[in-house]
């Protein structure tokens, strides 16, 4: 019985080995040269922010480009697997938008051995982890969220009387992006407006932001404005303001510049939004790859554009969407034009 079994297994194994060899032989015939191509691994394609980013990467490329995304923004290991998979294909340049500061570090150590440039966009790689893994990043481009908060703060400080009361609504507690936006806002209004309170909303939930805003308005009848860390929550807060019949008294400013946010600014539900441009971040990532291929030394950090959108320019912002409607600095393009 045992011999029958092993005989069968041996025959089978021989067959398997033969087929595998045949596959290797066929595969070896056509090694494509991808050293002029760009591969991008982004966080996800399941929301408009990352879809715009992916579009920017594809539109910005002059040659073939491969855009891959994680299954969701929680799929840290899946994203690492995808970067490892494209790394073996020998692309000339890699654009990465990591889900966390560290999840791609191990895969980056593979690319480090090839010596190909890696452009980090949007969410930064943890510098200490990258150093330990021997990974080097050619350049980083992303939104300066502190600056975005400052722009919002300057706007509200200019529109409201000195010492007016404002409340701040942030996203998930401890979220780096949310904190940077709130910190920037606070710094800009320091000594000009009074920040009555700050609340964090778990998972950036629109409905929870609405509830919190209602409570805050009840506790502070003289409130003059809200700063909200993203447009989605901002729309919830503006609904709360309308429900309370205070549209004339309370101004809502948020950050992001998603399409719904721009429309709400145009219709007056939001006083302003500070738009960031995932499309442009993707586009600049590809330009950075081209600049690196042309032999230029890239700047370590580049701030992607942000723009204040108010009722005056909301129509322009909407028609240019997802691209910026104003001129902006693009150091990579300047390098390419030299």
């Amino acid at each position: 019985m045992a011999s029958a079994r092993s005989w069968r297994a041996r025959r089978f194994r021989r067959g398997v080995a033969g087929l595998a060899l045949a596959a290797v032989a066929v595969a070896a015939c056509a090694p494509p040269d991808r050293s002029a191509e760009v591969a991008a691994i982004i966080k996800g394609l399941d929301n408009p922010f990352f879809q715009a980013m992916g579009q920017g990467i594809e539109d910005g490329a002059t040659g073939p480009v491969t855009v891959q995304a994680a299954q969701s923004t929680a799929d840290t290991t899946g994203q690492a697997d995808k970067l490892s998979a494209v790394a073996v294909q020998g692309f000339g340049c890699y654009i990465i938008n990591p889900i966390s500061g560290t999840n791609l570090v191990q895969s980056l150590s593979l690319i480090a051995k090839q010596g190909k440039p890696v452009i980090n966009i949007d969410s930064p790689v943890n510098a200490e982890a990258a150093r330990l893994a021997g990974a080097t990043l050619a350049s980083y481009v992303g939104t300066d969220n502190t600056h975005a908060g400052q722009v919002a703060g300057d706007f509200l400080a200019g529109r409201l009387p000195a010492g007016a009361k404002v409340a701040l609504i942030g996203g998930t507690a401890g979220d780096v992006t949310s904190r940077a936006r709130l910190d920037g806002f606070r710094a800009a209004v320091d000594g000009k407006l009074t920040v009555s309170q700050t609340v964090d909303v778990n998972e950036w939930s629109r409905s929870e932001a609405l509830t919190r805003a209602e409570e805050i308005m009840r506790a502070n009848p003289d409130l003059a404005g809200f700063f909200v860390a993203n447009d989605d929550m901002g729309l919830g807060v503006s609904r709360a303001v309308q429900n309370a019949g205070k549209s004339d008294q309370v101004r809502v400013v948020s950050v992001d510049g998603v399409e719904d946010g721009l429309r709400a600014v145009k219709s007056g539900q939001l006083a302003a939004t500070v738009a960031q441009y995932p499309y442009t971040i993707g586009e600049m990532g590809v330009e950075a790859c081209r600049a690196a291929a042309a032999g230029h030394t890239l700047p370590a950090t580049v701030n992607a554009p942000v723009a204040l959108v108010t009722q005056d320019n909301a129509a322009d912002a909407l028609s240019a969407f997802p691209k910026p409607f104003e001129q902006y600095d693009d150091p990579y393009r300047q390098l390419l034009q030299q």
Binding site: A20, A23, V24, P32, A80, S84, A85, V88
Partner: peptide, 22 residues
């Protein structure tokens, strides 16, 4: 076999290592 034929990178040593790790 299918992936080996469709993508020349599939059966490279580097990719096999990456797959085993993941």
């Amino acid at each position: 076999i299918v992936f080996g034929l469709a993508s020349p990178s599939f059966l490279t040593l580097g990719n096999i290592q990456a797959m085993l790790v993941s």
